[in-house]
Write a protein that binds this DNA or RNA. Structure first.
Lengths: 225, 225
DNA sequence: TCAAAAGTGTTTGCTATACACCCATGA
DNA sequence: TCATGGGTGTATAGCAAACACTTTTGA
């Protein structure tokens, strides 16, 4: 069997997608990395990703990588940027179309669906050395995420099905790395008209139970004036 | 000489860049299209673009296309989005990394540097039928441009070296398709501290001459709070 | 003298911020 | 009863929007 059976008149680069999978855990923004089992960069940590199937849409490819590592399918996934520096992969020319995903911390245990490769969560502020140009990809994704906080409700995508206003505030405080005034935050969050009370309470800890809320439209990110 | 000499173990897509080149002319946002000389979509209008050289950076490829069509090198050029629907090109799988560029209307005549292919400016609001998925690319670029008006000084990239406040206001009015209050606009524009008077006046028409301004840093787009 | 665009401040309304105390619960 | 996070309103400041007349020029 020939090892090189797909031929073209002009040289073609390989195309991959890589996915920055963010979650919030332990009040820190974290992301999922895979330890590489083969060369190049063997043993180093890298973003989940892989080659584009020749008949596969770009979004599908990224969603497939995401599902392989987390088992999740219906989470926020957005194309980020395309990285294609000629020497970014020592083997051959590789163009990487980077995506980023936001997943609620609750769903994280589904990650057991991962294949044999070692996978782990790392705080964005404390990453190990990374393969390829993945540090640059992560920096770009982090910037995009923080920028979108100001003009969209993207952070709501970190919420599970029901949540308290305290949890929502915690997400914003973690992402912006700042403390927010409780009354002002609640006024703002409710004025968006994106969330509604479920009528349930969450009893947790030695204190007054918190009202639970849900997103009126869980899959929609809205943009602020 | 063999016609298919570049072979790979797995199929590889072709990779192109396409560039949406915007300018403002006759108080309308316009963009540059090329009439296709060959199949597919022969005779239809399309964005300037072409295949990525195997050792060429993505930005270089887009800049090269831009220069080939306009002769311009130092203009605003930003990666937009990557389009890769499997059947978007009937010949083979093609991934297009789309860019957009903004050029001052004054410099437009340099477009004579174009090759033999027919090129023309079209108002965004009145486009001909387009090849491939170029209509979608243009829609995406237009949305990005309009969105950036609200939180950056990207529109200043349409300005020539010296300009009047009236011209700047005209650019904003054209892009946002709305009329703006002259006093409020001037207050806002000057408060940005991105422009300064040249000391010159422009005499033009039967009316009071206008003060000329320049960008303090012509190549920098700044982001608003 | 007329037409046309340049140039110039103040008032008003709204949004964002600052700020402190009581409530309900489990230990 | 104590510790813990949940829940609530008002006053102030800063920014954005509305608004009209005088200036300078060329025809």
């Amino acid at each position: 069997m020939p090892t090189e059976q797909h031929c073209y008149q002009y040289p073609h680069p390989a195309v991959t997608t890589d996915v920055v999978i963010f979650t919030i855990r332990d009040d820190r923004l974290q992301l999922l990395l895979i330890r590489r089992g083969g060369e190049p960069f063997k043993g180093m940590w890298a973003l989940p990703g892989g080659f584009l199937d020749i008949d596969e849409d770009l979004d599908q490819c990224a969603a497939r990588e995401l599902e392989e590592e987390t088992g999740l399918t219906d989470v926020y996934l957005e194309q980020l940027y395309t990285f294609g520096r000629p020497q970014r992969d020592p083997r051959e020319r590789v163009i990487s179309i980077a995506y980023y995903a936001l997943i609620p911390s609750q769903k994280m245990r589904l990650q057991a669906a991962s294949d044999a490769a070692e996978a782990a969560w790392f705080p964005v502020s404390d990453l190990p050395p990374l393969a390829f140009d993945h540090q640059e990809i992560i920096r770009t994704a982090h910037h995009r995420l923080v920028a979108k906080l100001d003009y969209s409700t993207i952070a709501f995508q970190f919420l599970s099905e029901s949540f308290t206003l305290g949890e929502l505030q915690g997400i914003y405080e973690t992402l912006a790395d700042s403390e927010l005034d409780k009354r002002n935050f609640r006024k703002w969050a409710l004025a968006l008209e994106q969330i509604e009370e479920t009528g349930e309470l969450r009893r947790q800890g030695n204190h007054r139970p918190a009202r639970l809320y849900r997103l009126k439209d869980p899959t929609t990110v809205s943009y602020l004036k």
